[in-house]
Design a protein around this nucleic acid. Structure first.
Length: 217
DNA sequence: ATCCCGAGGG
DNA sequence: CCCTCTGGAT
C-alpha cells in the first residue's frame, strides 16, 4: 500500500496561493450568485456539465427566477426547456423542482444552513452542500470536486486518496489567510491551467513550485 | 460499479 | 469519431 506524499511546507503554500491570487484577481463564478438559492441551483446543475454550459443556461433563467416560489411557478416543463442545452437536463430539472418544493414547504423558502438538511435535498450531495456551507454561511467546509481533488494531489497542496483526506488536508495545510478563497482559486487553476487531460504546465504560474511531472509538450 | 446526457474539444 | 465535463443516486 503506497504511502501518501507529504503536503508542501507552509512557506511553499504561501507562495503558491499568493501567485494564484495574483493570477486571478477577480473572483467571478461564486460572487455572481450572491443569491443563495441561485447558487444552490447553479451548483446542482453543474454536475457532469461544463461550467460554460451551465453559465449560459442560467444567465437568462436567473434574470427571472430569484426564489424557489418563482421556480415552482415556472414549473418543471419550463425549467426543462430552459436548461435543455446541458447534459442530464431531465433529471436536473426534476431535482430542482422537487428541491424548490421542499424549500418552500419545510424551510420557509430559505436555503437551510446545516449539512444534513442540505444533503437531504434531491440532487444535493456532499460537494454541493459544502459549497453552500462555505460560500453562503462562511463555515470551514471544503467542497472537493474533481478539479480540486486533482490540483491538490498534483501540486501536493493537500494530497489525499479520497475526498475526505483532501478535505482535511485543505483545512490542515492551507494557510489561514487563504482558506476563504482557496476553493475559488483551486477551481480556476484546475479549469484553466491544471487541466485533467492536457495540463498546461508551460504557462503555469506555480510551475517551479510544483512536483508534478508531466511537463511534456 | 454503473447509469444519467448534450455540448464542445482533440 | 471518441472523450470529457465543478456529481448524485442506485
Amino acid at each position: 500500500m503506497a504511502r501518501l506524499p507529504a503536503p508542501l511546507p507552509y512557506q511553499t503554500q504561501v507562495a503558491i496561493f499568493s501567485r494564484l491570487r495574483d493570477a486571478n484577481p477577480a473572483p467571478v463564478t461564486e460572487l455572481q450568485h450572491q443569491n443563495p438559492y441561485q447558487l444552490l441551483v447553479a451548483v446542482a446543475l453543474s454536475a457532469q456539465s461544463t461550467d460554460a454550459g451551465v453559465n449560459r443556461a442560467t444567465e437568462d433563467l436567473f434574470d427571472r427566477i430569484h426564489t424557489p416560489q418563482q421556480m415552482l411557478e415556472l414549473g418543471q416543463d419550463g425549467l426543462t426547456e430552459a436548461i435543455k442545452t446541458i447534459g442530464l437536463f431531465r433529471q436536473k430539472a426534476q431535482n430542482v423542482i422537487r428541491m424548490s418544493q421542499i424549500l418552500v414547504d419545510d424551510y420557509g423558502g430559505q436555503v437551510p444552513s446545516s449539512r444534513a438538511a442540505l444533503m437531504s435535498l434531491p440532487g444535493v450531495g456532499r460537494k454541493t452542500a459544502n459549497v453552500i456551507l462555505n460560500c453562503v454561511f462562511g463555515q470551514p467546509a471544503q467542497a472537493v470536486d474533481t478539479h480540486i481533488f486533482r490540483v491538490c494531489n498534483r501540486t501536493r497542496i493537500a494530497p489525499g486518496r479520497d475526498v475526505d483526506e483532501v478535505e482535511r488536508g485543505i483545512e490542515d495545510n492551507i494557510p489561514a489567510e487563504f482558506q476563504q478563497n482557496a476553493h475559488h482559486w483551486l477551481i480556476l487553476h484546475g479549469r484553466y491551467i491544471c487541466q485533467a487531460r492536457r495540463p498546461r504546465c508551460p504557462i503555469c504560474p506555480i510551475n517551479d513550485l510544483c512536483p508534478y511531472e508531466e511537463k511534456t509538450a
